[in-house]
Structures are given as C-alpha cells and as structure tokens.
Amino acid sequence: MSRVLALKSSILGEYSQSSKLLGEYIAKFDQDQLTLRDLAANPVPVLDGSVIGAFGAAATGELTADQQAVVDLSNTLIEELKAADTIVIAAPMYNFTIPTQLKNWFDLICRAGITFKYTESGVQGLIEGKKAVVITTRGGIHKDAPQDIVSSYLKTILGFIGVTDVEFAYAEALNMGDEYKEKGLDSAKQQLSSITL
C-alpha cells in the first residue's frame, strides 16, 4: 500500500485553488495511508538563530526545553517524510516563488547527516526511492519561463535530499479571467490524471 505525505501551503484557506486540486487528487488514495500537513493552518518555525542553535545542540545532547521542542518537531516532520512513498506538494506561486510556509518546512527537514550528507564527491541525498508530485498554481503564465522559480527551486531542493523523481501539474492563468482560469484548472487536472504512481 502506497503511503502518501501531502503538504498544503496556501494562505488562502477555502479560496485556495492549489488546496482544492490537492484535495481532489489525494481523495483517490487510501486515507488510512495518508498524512496531511496544512503548513498555513499549522505553521512550523522560521529558520533563525534559535532553530540553528537547536540543531547544533542536538549533536551534543545538551538542549534547552525550547530547543528540544524544535528538534522533536523536525524529527517528526522527517519521520513523516521517510514513511511516505509519495510526497504530494501543493505549491502556489507567491511573488515568483513558493510560500514562506512551505520554505519553512524544507528548512526544518533539510538536516546534514539525516536527510543529506556531504561526501568527497558532493552532496548525497538520504531520502531515496520516493516520488514527488507538485501541484503548482499561478495567477499568470510562467511555465518554462525564466521567472518560474517555483519549479526550479522544488526540483533542486527535493533532489538535494534525494527525491529525484518529481512530476509537476501546472494550473496557470488563474487570474486572467474566467475562461483562462477554467482552462488552467482543467489542464492541471488532466496532468494529474496522467501521473502514474
């Protein structure tokens, strides 16, 4: 049975097209095998000095209560990632990049020696044998254009931790009028239906 980790990151709540597309897509999976994280409704900490300090202290085992809480959350997120066969990410484009909420998740799961390691030949991702499906929504049309930082960033960061099988479904032109919006959403649904897991 395929285990799925699904990540929502839109700040738009019930108005979010990426969340709606994600919901429709993951409905076909066994819900007992699904872990859903809404990173906007339940945000994880921003990577700052205290979070980095907690990760450093974890190596020595000398943590404050606050540091232990950060490390415990990071470990939980990583265990959810490791347990999944497929990661489904809803990633709307905000100001040409991913939402802060999704970036924060990556910052908490990218940990040297745990999800990646440095070797003499470069970085080696330690989260292998998984597939990622990215559902990305945009107000305009950006696919394959230089400003499509969302796609390049997600391919890079997922590959960094070892997830190299990544497929995208694009819903574009959502703010360019009803006709474009309908076509954009239909296109994304067709793309999703053709992705094999």
Rank of each mutant, 00 (worst) to 15 (best):
P99T: 03
T119W: 09
L22E: 00
T156Y: 13
I141V: 13
C110D: 00
V71M: 12
L102K: 12
S18N: 01
Q33A: 15
T156D: 03
S74R: 07
V123G: 00
L22S: 03
Y94G: 04
T136L: 00
T115M: 07
K130H: 12
Q33G: 00
I87S: 00
L39T: 05
L108S: 05
Q67Y: 11
I161M: 15
F160G: 06
K20A: 14
M176A: 11
A171S: 06
T60E: 04
N75C: 01
I135A: 09
K143M: 01
M93S: 01
T164I: 13
N104D: 08
V44C: 07
K131E: 03
I141R: 05
E79V: 01
I89F: 09
P45W: 11
K181A: 15
F160A: 09
L36C: 10
K189S: 12
G56M: 04
V4N: 12
D72P: 04
D165K: 14
A173R: 04
V166Y: 05
L34N: 02
T64N: 05
S18F: 14
V70L: 11
Y118P: 00
A91N: 07
A59V: 14
S193A: 15
A112V: 10
G162P: 14
A40H: 15
S121E: 15
Q101S: 14
S9N: 06
A65K: 07
P43Q: 04
F106D: 02
S18T: 07
V71Y: 06
L197A: 02
T97W: 10
S121A: 13
M1D: 12
A6N: 09
K189V: 15
V51W: 01
T115A: 03
G159T: 02
E179M: 04
L185Y: 08
G177M: 10
E120W: 00
I87F: 07
A132D: 07
I127R: 08
G184R: 12
K82W: 02
A169S: 13
K183W: 01
A91I: 02
T64V: 09
N175F: 12
G125W: 15
T86Q: 05
Q190T: 06
S193E: 15
I26G: 03
S193V: 03
I149T: 11
G13F: 10
G13T: 03
